[in-house]
């Protein structure tokens, strides 16, 4: 465990918890894409298939449980909670899961480290995580005005991505045989998707104005 990895995990954890706390306290999910949240729940469910079979560390197991629990809780709130569900921008959040899930699944069947169910699902989860933010970014573009918490949520997710890249670079130079093309390329794609959002986020922060995205 290096400092970049820890910082990445912590910002990732904060992003999910900030969102869950927001939904729980203000009983609103305005501006949040249910499609993205469902995709993240699917990402965690398919990546952590090893949770009960391979023990890595207490830290690892606890983090996995928190990510699974919080992502499914968010989906539950947005779909089932009678107040929260009313604030959901259903008409604006029109991105189809199918268009992201199917290509990722096909890619995982072709590009994987081993052709076993667990390995294919693991590769699928990485490909899907890379693009799962797209429905959220589309929703941000459409609704234009972004409240602070939604902005912070995407900002924390972006920070998590950046720290993970530093973590890979660090591990590449410090650990022998640490080469993971699937993780790196999908991680890089994912980070690039945030670059555009970050550009506007920093501009609005620098000029001290409310974040607005161009059409």
């Amino acid at each position: 465990m290096n400092i970049f990895r820890l910082a990445g995990d912590m910002t990732h954890l904060m992003s999910v918890l900030v969102l869950l706390l927001k939904i729980h306290t203000i009983k609103s999910c305005a501006g949040i894409s249910l499609k993205t949240q469902e995709l993240y729940a699917l990402v965690f469910a398919t990546r952590y298939l090893d949770i009960f079979t391979d023990f890595i560390s207490v830290y690892n197991t606890i983090m996995k449980l928190i990510f699974l629990g919080s992502s499914f809780s968010i989906v539950w709130y947005m779909r089932r909670h009678k107040l929260v569900r009313r604030s959901y921008d259903k008409e604006q959040d029109t991105f189809r899961h199918f268009f992201l899930v199917l290509p990722c699944l096909l890619l995982a069947l072709v590009m994987n480290e081993k052709f076993t169910f667990k390995e294919v699902m693991w590769a699928f989860s990485l490909y899907l995580e890379a693009v799962a933010i797209l429905p959220q970014l589309v929703l941000l573009q459409r609704t234009k005005n972004i409240d602070n918490l939604t902005g912070q949520y995407v900002f924390l997710l972006g920070a998590y991505r950046a720290f993970y890249i530093f973590n890979w670079i660090y591990r590449y130079f410090t650990e022998p045989h640490y080469v993971h093309w699937i993780t790196w390329i999908s991680g890089l794609v994912q980070t690039l998707l945030y670059a555009d959002f970050f550009y506007y986020y920093f501009n609005s922060w620098k000029n001290n104005v409310k974040l607005h995205l161009p059409a």
Partner: peptide, 10 residues
């Protein structure tokens, strides 16, 4: 060599 350490990341 085969890596077994990849799944220590979240």
């Amino acid at each position: 060599p085969q890596n077994n350490d990849k799944k220590d990341e979240l």
